[in-house]
């Protein structure tokens, strides 16, 4: 298969931009991310990851692919399976037909992942582009080079139970539209994203969610060790493979820049710059947290909370800017 592997910052937006580009609809990763209105923030204490609350910086898994395809009018087929045998057969069929196939997998069971990155996370996306000598050829968007994986390992990774269980999820693109009305879609996507970030009815989502997390940090109780674990967890959710909080802000800023050029709109270029500053604030926050965790002094909770509030205010500022643009 004549397939062009592209490394990307995030697995889901990377997989879908590769899939669409392969079908002749060339789209960059930031554009895919932005048009799926994927930027978000959520602090969800009832979903525990290793005993700590889930902190998400983008929409939940599958939402990017579904949202983008719906917005663009792309025909995409999702398949889940009950039996691993059926799933493996269906995958082999598609590969034999020369189709590019997207899969949802668990990171822990992918042998090519670095040992220290293999945590239990069930919603990692990758592409299968062929099979040679009984081994699947993989394009994993977060790696710079192509990978190979034995059928046994891949089947295992596709059929993990637990939170966000992939159930063998496999997806292929049926059809792509010949023309896309970018000005209209960009406006729609930004408007929708604005609602997620500033208009959610729950206090744990969007800009309010960031302030909520600041409050949680301020009132953190327990031993110093517990506090360290909690704060370290926030940084991991923010920066490690698959999540990347500051990273997502930069991806979105890149989308705004691309949109500004496409529509020749200066207001979007300004918003892109402001979003870049937000990303930088998040990175500074991560630096500050790790510094606090490493020092022997008691953790300066108020200081960290204050930093987060600054991020929240900056992010609210960007959305205000975009709100004015959207209205005008």
């Amino acid at each position: 298969m004549n397939f062009q592997h592209r490394q990307s910052a995030h697995c889901e937006s990377g997989v879908i931009s590769s899939l669409l580009s392969h079908q002749g609809l060339s789209i960059s990763e930031p554009m895919a991310f932005g048009l799926a209105n994927a930027l978000a923030f959520a602090y969800i204490p009832i979903v525990k990851i290793g005993g700590q609350p889930l902190v998400a910086y983008r929409l939940p898994p599958r939402a990017i692919i579904k949202g983008l395809c719906k917005r663009l009018g792309v025909g995409v087929k999702f398949h889940t399976f009950k039996s691993p045998m059926d799933a493996a057969e269906a995958l082999d069929d598609c590969v034999a037909r020369g189709q590019l196939v997207g899969l949802q997998t668990s990171v822990y069971y992918l042998p090519y992942f670095p040992e220290q990155m293999r945590f239990h996370f069930n919603a990692h996306n990758l592409l299968v582009y062929g099979k040679r000598d009984g081994v699947y050829q993989i394009s994993d968007p977060v790696f710079e080079e192509l990978m190979e994986i034995a059928p046994r390992d891949l089947n295992k990774a596709r059929f993990v139970r637990g939170p966000l269980a992939p159930k063998g999820l496999m997806y292929t693109i049926d059809s792509v539209p010949s023309e896309i009305d970018y000005p209209r879609l960009i406006r729609q996507a930004i408007g929708k994203n604005m609602k997620v970030m500033t208009g959610a009815p729950l206090p744990v989502i969007g800009v309010r969610g960031i302030r909520h997390m600041a409050k949680k940090i301020e009132h953190l109780r327990g031993s110093e060790q517990d506090k360290r674990l909690y704060l370290g967890h926030i940084v991991r959710m923010q920066e490690e493979i698959g999540t990347g909080g500051a990273g997502f802000r930069f991806v979105y800023a890149s989308f705004l820049q691309e949109a500004a050029q496409m529509l020749n709109d200066n207001a979007l270029a300004e918003a892109s710059q402001a979003m870049t500053d937000v990303g930088d604030l998040w990175r500074e926050f991560a630096v500050a947290v790790v510094k606090e965790c490493k020092s022997d002094r008691p953790i300066d909770r108020a200081g960290l909370a204050e930093r987060l509030r600054v991020s929240a205010a900056a992010e609210a500022g960007v959305w205000d800017q975009l709100k004015r643009w959207h209205r005008g």
């Binding site: 991991r236 920066e239 490690e240 991560a286 790790v290 490493k294």
Partner: peptide, 8 residues
């Protein structure tokens, strides 16, 4: 910074 959190 990220590595410190991961290694922790």
């Amino acid at each position: 910074v990220e590595a410190a959190a991961t290694l922790d």
